[in-house]
Structures are given as structure tokens and as C-alpha cells.
Amino acid sequence: MSTLLAIFIYLSTLVFVVGLLQRIRDYAGTPAPLKIPTTPAPTTGGGVVLRMVREVVFFESLFKGNLWTWVSGWLFHFSMLLVVFRHLRYFTEPVWGWVDFIQPFGIYAGITMVAGLLGLLARRIFVERIRYISTPSDFLMLVLLIGIASSGLLMKFVGHPDVIMVKNYFLGLMHLSIRELPSNFVLYAHLSMVFTLLLIFPMSKLLHAPGLFFSPSRNQADNPREKRHIAPWAAKLESEK
């Protein structure tokens, strides 16, 4: 079983990395022929960086758009970030100081992550408009994430697997050697779901993460009168004349 899971982990990580890089290259290589920043648009490159930071850290636009979605979404994303940081202890030896420091916070974050996800799920179920636009995959994505978070919490608070063995397993994987993983059902479920998430990342709406950075309405400086902006395919129209 350990080996089977290892193969799946390698495979999904490969799909995740290669797929994501390819997608990013695709975005970066596609021209944005016209200046289309949305108001309030900064006029300088520095302003764009600030705007992007506000979007990434505070979800500024979503905050303007809908407070409940913002509360749930922000809580979920930043809890998950803490949880991911907490998990670095399974991949580092010795464990970095700051990772050690955040261990207890990471546990609370697991709980708030589920709370945020349940908020998002409730919105999908109970708000007529959101229910209308939801596809089965939208629900499954939330269920998958709730599954990941709650199986993690289950291992923390109910049935502890041998974490030393778990750590050895991952340190081994990082050096291309497959070691034994504790035969714990919840652990297997947890890991399978996590790597399923990575597997579908480059071909699903999870692409919103890299997408934001390439969104012309957010990443362009509003200076069209000061500097001529022209895409290569559009410039060709001029040389043809």
C-alpha cells in the first residue's frame, strides 16, 4: 500500500508541477493587446504591485463585493496557508525554528479552515443565486477540502498515527526511496485527497491562484496616454500597410 500511494504521490506532484508551469507559461505568453485596467487603477508599476498585494493578502475586491463570502473565503485560505506551513515539519530535518513556533497555531487553523469551508458550502446550498451557478464540481471541490481538513483534525484529536513513521516516509520520498507508512485508514484517506487536489489543480478552477497575477484588469498600470502599448500581432497590422 505504501508503494501504491507513493506512485500516486509522485504522479500527482508531477502533473501539478508540469501542468501548472505549462499553464503559467501559456498565460505569460498570450498577449494582452489593449489596456484594460479596472478602476481604481494605479498609474505606475509600483502602484500595481501594491494593488496586487492588497488583492492577494486581503482579497480587496471580494471584500467590496460580498462580506460573507469574504469572511468565509479569507478564513479558509489563510487558515490553509498556516496549516500548510505547519506541515513543513514532515519535510524538514531538523525542523526550522519558525515552523516549530507555529505548530500550535496550525492546529487552530485546521479548525477555522473547516469553519470557512462550511461557510462557503452553506452559501452554495442556501443562497439561490449561488446555487444556480454551482456545478457538481464546485460542490465536490469543497467536499474534498473539507475531507482533507477534517481527516487531518481527526488524526490530531482522535487516532494519532505514528508521526515519526510518517515523517520518515516523506523524507524518504524526497530522496526517491519508498519507506513504510503506518497502516492507518484516515492517514491514507487524508493523503489521497491532498494529492488528488494537486492532480486536478492545473485543469480546474483552482487556476484562479495563478490566474489573478495574469489578470489584465488588475495587473496593468493605467498609463495608456503616456506610453504606447502594442501587442506583437497588432503591430503586424501596421507593417502590412
Binding site: I130, I133, H208, S215
Partner: peptide, 21 residues
Amino acid sequence: LSRYRSLKVYMDACVHCGACS
């Protein structure tokens, strides 16, 4: 899709959050 980054990114990025709805 190959000429407009806006379209390509916008087709992929929506998570159906409903903020615009």
C-alpha cells in the same frame, strides 16, 4: 484565446464565488 490573455485567464479563473452575481 491565443490572442487575448484576458479571455484565456477569465475562462479559467472563475471559482463561482458569486461576488458579481
